[in-house]
Write a protein that binds this DNA or RNA. Sequence first.
DNA 1: CATCAGACCGAACATAGTTCGGCAAAACTT
DNA 2: AAGTTTTGCCGAACTATGTTCGGTCTGATG
Lengths: 144, 144
Amino acid sequence: MDDIDRALVLRLQQDAGQSYAALGTAVGLSAGATHERVRKLRERGVIRRTTVDVDPAAVGSGVLAYVMVDSNAWMGESGDDFAAIPEIQEAHIIAGSASVLVKVRTASTEQLQDVLRRLYAIDGVSGTHATVVLETFFERPLPL
Amino acid sequence: MDDIDRALVLRLQQDAGQSYAALGTAVGLSAGATHERVRKLRERGVIRRTTVDVDPAAVGSGVLAYVMVDSNAWMGESGDDFAAIPEIQEAHIIAGSASVLVKVRTASTEQLQDVLRRLYAIDGVSGTHATVVLETFFERPLPL
DNA sequence: CATCAGACCGAACATAGTTCGGCAAAACTT
DNA sequence: AAGTTTTGCCGAACTATGTTCGGTCTGATG
């Protein structure tokens, strides 16, 4: 994981569709060597997969909210329960007063309410505190 | 934006590296027609870009925290101020007691503290409340 | 000093991306 | 309802890229 690897990851985050030749030129390598570097980055798990970035509003997920989930039990094994709710995009165990923080995307606030209802149905969940996002400044890749 | 488009976006989210031929077979189209569909999805902005999913811990961002930022002024024009802090991965204006919610990734809690210091330096910021993530259950693409 | 392992280059070969003419179905027009 | 236009698709040609491989160099190891 040297400077060249970091440069490769950075450029792939910006555009994973470019050719190995272009990528190689940018970092000072041949296409073949670049290919080999990227292959190893995938093998090591640094690069998990290549994906596309989708406009949420265009696919019926125009409402974004973060929900603090309070509980009266240990939630460490409840990952699957949260994963079963498709509108939940992220779920984290957190330090602090609540015990789980989830990121939810829905088409409407009515559907958001329905997600909250399903959250309450999870074992150990004693309360929720939803924060609705009014405007997103930006969402961007990791710094390098 | 019909069922085929949704199927294409779904499959591209899972693996943007597969061939148009494979993608076409999966949805019942030829490679050429698939190519044209995906081109239009990009043109319309439904697909914003193709990127790679990187393991944060592998690139020196093992600490994740969400920070509620309180303010005593209108923050609607301060997007650039938040964008100037590279460790901030997302920044949103929110409804509720705080006015901005940011997602921060750093290598250490010391660096997290330094980010908080830089947040305080932004015009109008009157306080912060950081929530450190202990474990991430999952982070996944949008539902379709 | 000799040997070994790792990384790179450049060229060959295989595969996929991209374009295009022709066709058919659907959507307007009159 | 018939004509006309538009849209979307197929399949094949053409172009570009991915992928592999032998040979070379460099730095590390013993």
